[in-house]
């Protein structure tokens, strides 16, 4: 029992926040509000799944916010034309995929550090988005498209359904296929993985391309929900997705962790902002509260590791052959 409790700190933190909010706000534990929280976290979860994969390979993707802005802006302008929404959707995936592919090539082939490659990509794509939009905002999409973000299926908001599908697909991909195993292997030890015959460069390129596609999907959900596209969107997304991943227990060292933890990480972060709104926490305090909770979450995990005897991270990882 003790081991279980200490081994699932994230679950416990989420539970603790849920219980606290239930007592502090009468409207928190209602079906409507819970659906609301799930709907709000859908976007973050989709983005964080890609981020988690990048971090598992020992990388990072700082470009997701900007790529999301560019892909959704271009998609929006196509969505406004013609009779069908599909060209717009295709454009979004094409741009997301291309940006991800480029990131992957820069990292795997040109050997740029992931931080820098994706940071540069972020500047460039954001710049193009601004230039392309010329300061305008595109708004008012067809109902067929808006259904994706604002519609309901059997009483459940669409974003939640999309999130569930994406999560299931990637859970299977990561844990039941050889591709998933390779992603972990690259993160554990790239050189050894290469020596064992895996084309590690392809694995890395695949991860960033998938990430780009997920970003495009998130962008479509976003503009469908918001009913508008503008180049400024998503500036805080990279840090939010990284925070969700790390709070979820996937470390930067790579090779460990997974998207289940990330799901909890995103849940905790979304709960916090929902709770702060419900409790009427002053705008000025919000960033301080968020920062403190992130630190406390990780602190709780470290303490639990000490208690279960897993030991601090540095000592736990033994040198690989």
């Amino acid at each position: 029992m003790r081991r279980f409790l200490l081994g699932n700190t994230r679950l416990l933190i989420a539970l603790a926040i849920v219980i606290a909010l239930t007592f502090m706000s009468p409207v928190f534990l209602t079906k409507d509000n819970l659906l609301n929280v799930l709907r709000q976290m859908a976007l973050l979860v989709i983005l964080s799944i890609g981020m988690t994969m990048a971090i598992i390979t020992g990388g990072i993707d700082l470009s997701i916010g900007s790529v999301l802005a560019l892909s959704s802006c271009l998609a929006a302008s196509f969505l406004k034309r013609g009779d069908s929404m599909w060209p717009g959707v295709m454009v979004a995936f094409a741009i997301g995929g291309a940006a991800g592919l480029l990131n992957g090539i820069m990292i795997a082939k040109v050997k740029l550090p992931p931080f820098i490659a994706t940071y540069g990509m972020g500047w460039i794509t954001r710049g193009i988005a601004y230039v392309y939009m010329g300061g305008n905002i595109i708004y008012g999409f067809r109902p067929q498209f808006r259904f994706l973000g604002a519609g309901y299926l059997m009483g459940i908001p669409m974003p939640i359904i999309v999130m569930a599908c994406v999560f299931t697909a990637f859970y299977i991909f990561l844990h039941r296929t050889v591709y998933g195993r390779n992603i972990y292997a690259v993160g554990c030890n790239e050189a050894a993985t290469r020596l064992s015959g895996v084309r590690t460069d392809r694995v890395i390129i695949m991860v960033y391309t998938l990430n780009g596609l997920l970003v495009a999907l998130a962008g479509l959900l976003y503009i469908a929900r918001l009913n508008a596209a503008e180049p400024v969107i998503g500036e805080s997304f990279p840090l939010e997705a990284i925070a969700a991943t790390l709070v979820g227990g996937t470390p930067f060292t790579g090779g460990e962790g997974g998207i289940t933890g990330t799901l909890f990480g995103a849940f905790i972060l979304t709960l916090l902002s929902n709770g702060m709104n419900l409790l009427g926490v002053s705008s000025l305090w919000q960033s301080a509260v968020l920062g403190s909770v992130i630190v406390l979450a990780i602190l709780a995990e470290e303490v639990s590791k000490l208690l279960t005897g897993a030991g601090p991270r540095l000592k736990r990882i033994s040198p690989s052959p």
Binding site: L239, I242, A243, L246, V247, F252, L284, W285, Q286, S287, A288, V289, L290, G291, S292, I294, V295, I298
Partner: peptide, 13 residues
């Protein structure tokens, strides 16, 4: 990353 990210929010707040 996580420690200084937390500090980023706290100090700003």
């Amino acid at each position: 990353f996580i420690s200084t990210f937390g500090m980023m929010g706290i100090a700003q707040g």
